[in-house]
Amino acid sequence: MSDWIEACAADDIDEEDVIRFDHAGRTFALYRSPEDEFFATDGLCTHEQIHLSQGLVMGDIIECPKHNGRFNYKTGAARGAPVCVNLRTYPVKVDAGKVFVQLG
């Protein structure tokens, strides 16, 4: 198993929102759900390589800012045109107010 990487403080992400996290030349998106849980996915939309962190989180959906492609950020499942390729997800844990991601 790969290491847990410290990504940000839990308070850096608003409830039902997303931020960008870059690490080792890769880009990711970190989410805080309305239920106050944390999730991580690849940072770019599978349709046209757009940063999802500028998109809108609604419930368990992240919507791409460019063409409104939708994914369930908890599972990575593509949820409608124009996206048809799922998003990769990563394990997340919160410890002492810090968000950690396991980037395989």
């Binding site: 500028q54 460019k66 409104n68």
Partner: peptide, 11 residues
Amino acid sequence: PGNAVARDIRL
């Protein structure tokens, strides 16, 4: 620049 207005336009 970029997608700076995207989220607010969507809302």
